[in-house]
Design a protein around this nucleic acid. Structure first.
Lengths: 412, 412
DNA sequence: CTTAAATGTCAAGTAATTTAACATAGGTCA
DNA sequence: TGACCTATGTTAAATTACTTGACATTTAAG
């Protein structure tokens, strides 16, 4: 094949600028996302190419130091040589900006975490405050890891709002002050590095798909339950963003028409019933109404955060557990719709609130299965994330590595 | 390029058995789905290939008589030669089995309808009754068109339930008696022809995308409102079926937890509130409660069908109009969730009930826009189908033509 | 009638992949 | 120990789909 070319998607056609070496890139991705590495013969089977073709592609990748060979142990016949990404060529940074916190990871080229950092960050303070803070924190984590910015090849970043064309955030009323701000270009200039920007829930889906609970699932929904609630969708193996990049806005699906008013202006949104703020508000209500609970120890009462409720629930506080269960039922109601519409094979529940585990998962599962007798609801597996608070930041790492590895592959 | 190869979908890889001539197939699709035809130069621009490459591909297609040249009129410079599918090579049949009716179309290779037929069919009678009836009707429409089965090259068919692997229907409680029956193989044997089988709502989406209101939309949802309610989803230009082929089951999304019991066993499903049977039931209620309405003329009252309600609403019957509006509000409620989750650029409303037009559409639009202030809901266009009752049958034709044209293209 | 501006075609060169033969690395069994 | 089997990996020639760059064709404008 020469230049140009087309990826045909059943009956529509999607022109791609640089299709040169599709297969080279596919090989890179198969190597990096197969845990424990993959041999040449396995590559040739999965890609419907001959061993000879794989040999030439792989030797190209070896010549730029992108992959390396490892020993393997199989019976009967010559042992396959397992290939994996060469981790020693550099580092990448993954940044996950949440509503109230930011998580930053430094990893090597095979996505192994070298250093981690978690700090508070008020997203509502706007980009002029947040981005310099992020810059400072990136330099801090690099120093802690004994590295400098020169050791970093690319950066992946996530924000808790719909991302348009990978450039910035769109759409009030979410993330006031950020609308239209060129986040990617700002970060790119700040560090003089290529930057990939995405929605945090999408990154969570990518992270859990690549290294977590959703490995290899073709139809995966990741739902991030924190201060806000959002879903990241992997459909037919691709991140699905919709027409404006705002697909998966499950936080603003109406659950109860007579429910509390949401930050978005409507009534009874999922986020207003099961988000972090809703959980904190319910807890304050219970304390004020004089109910016996560990939460009463916190003073002033208005300082109660969803974290406190979750911690108390863990330690056996019945009131807190009830609040979490209620949130789970609301989540299950919304997820039942999502499951009926998307028919994913797996739903991964992540985000701060999800850290509590089965106490939240059980009511979700029960509600989803109860809500429908249909095959979609019966077959879907609902589980919590394997990467915990790191899901989105790991997704950001995956994105950063995509930039780096594919660019390296082209530089043959 | 040789044999084999891979379609890379961002970071996952999708092995394709027969990627030989991806571009040839892409050219065929661009020609058939560009209304008014397309020139070589335009093909080369849209596909990122050189004019020379297009020339060789097109001459291959001409040598098997698949495409033909037409005159065109452009200013300044040589006029481009417009290419279109050669319609004279044969015919295909599209079959849309609904819950109560079946629509059959015969078209030529450029999808122009030669003959149409609409007959009653009770899907609940099971495949042993329905499929022989369909066979009989196909022979009848062919005779009416002055053709025989030998003039037909392929058949597309749609059924009102989730289709698994293009072979048959899965999942009770929908379509009792059909579960696991090899519908495609049965039809294929009956006519000794290749058959493509799909869900009817998916076919509606395909039909409206190809020749109707949703031309060229990359993110399209088609909602079929008939006896049952289902959605067909075109995401990123591909039909999205989900893990079990049951994506888009919007009919069984819960709208009102205390609502009427649905055929699926749950309470308050959309279908139980806004489907054809629900509309008929509401009408019977109103007549029985003594309300003044044209519907009172129908006797016995239990004979009232949704068609009657729609006809009466058209003629100005206020009670019927109110019933339709109520259904519209329920539909809008469910579609608001769908829009927030999928963020499609367009929603096309089709099916029997939708034939009434704005009386149903207006409450849908109002409810969707009211339900959310988010970009997804504000930007989505909601419209009725352009192909009317034919949407799904035209989708079936598209499928049949895909079989035929791509096989012809390979036979170079 | 010339020139310019497009579209379409042709022949030679190129790059990715197949084909088919061969090389390598292990296990098994006489 | 070595003959034999099996599976993986490599090599060189052939094939194929494309690009490159020159040329041919068709139209409008001066």
């Amino acid at each position: 094949m020469g230049q140009g070319g087309v990826l045909s998607t059943f009956f529509w056609t999607l022109p791609t600028q640089n299709v040169k070496n599709i297969n080279k890139h596919a090989v890179v991705d198969l190597i990096r996302f197969t845990s424990g590495g993959i041999s040449r013969i396995e590559l040739s089977r999965q890609m419907n190419l001959t061993r000879a073709a794989i040999t030439t592609i792989v030797s190209d990748l070896q010549s730029v130091g992108l992959v390396r060979e490892v020993e393997s142990h199989y019976p009967s016949g010559r042992r396959p040589i397992v290939l994996e990404i060469n981790p020693d060529r550099g580092y990448v940074v993954g940044i996950d900006m949440g509503a109230t916190h930011v998580t930053i990871l430094v990893t090597d080229y095979s996505a192994r975490v070298v250093r981690e950092l978690d700090e508070t960050l008020d997203i509502n303070a706007g980009p002029e405050v947040c981005l310099p803070r992020v810059e400072e924190l990136v330099y801090r984590i690099l120093a802690e890891a004994g590295l400098t910015i020169k050791d970093v090849s690319a950066i992946g970043a996530g924000v808790p709002g719909p991302v348009v064309a990978g450039i910035g955030v769109s759409g009030p009323p979410i993330m006031p002050g950020w609308d239209g701000y060129p986040i990617r270009d700002d970060l790119s200039k700040r560090f003089s590095l290529p930057v990939s920007l995405r929605n945090d829930a999408e990154l969570g889906a990518i992270g859990e798909w690549a290294y977590g609970a959703g490995r290899g699932e073709r139809h995966l929904a990741y739902i991030k339950v924190g201060t806000g609630i959002g879903a990241g969708l992997l459909l037919d193996g691709q991140v699905y963003g919709g027409a404006n990049g705002s697909a998966g806005e499950i936080g603003h699906v109406t659950i109860d028409e007579s429910g509390p008013i949401c930050t978005c202006g409507n009534r009874g949104c999922l986020e207003a019933l099961a988000g972090g703020r809703a959980i904190a508000r319910r807890a304050i209500q219970e304390v004020n109404s004089g109910r016996r609970t560990m939460l009463a120890e916190i003073s002033p009462v208005s300082n109660i955060r969803s974290r406190d409720v979750i911690a108390a629930a863990r330690r056996g506080d019945l009131t807190s557990q009830q609040i979490v269960t209620e949130a789970g039922v609301h989540l299950g109601t919304a997820l039942a719709s999502l499951v009926n519409l998307f028919n994913p094979s797996m739903v991964v529940v992540g985000g701060g609130v999800a850290q509590i585990g089965d106490l939240l998962l059980e009511p979700i599962r029960e509600t989803v299965h109860q809500r429908s007798l249909l095959p979609a609801s019966r077959s879907v597996r609902i589980t919590s994330g394997l990467l915990g608070r790191r899901s989105s930041a790991m997704g950001a790492v995956v994105q950063a590595l995509s930039i780096v590895l594919h660019r390296l592959a082209d530089h043959e």
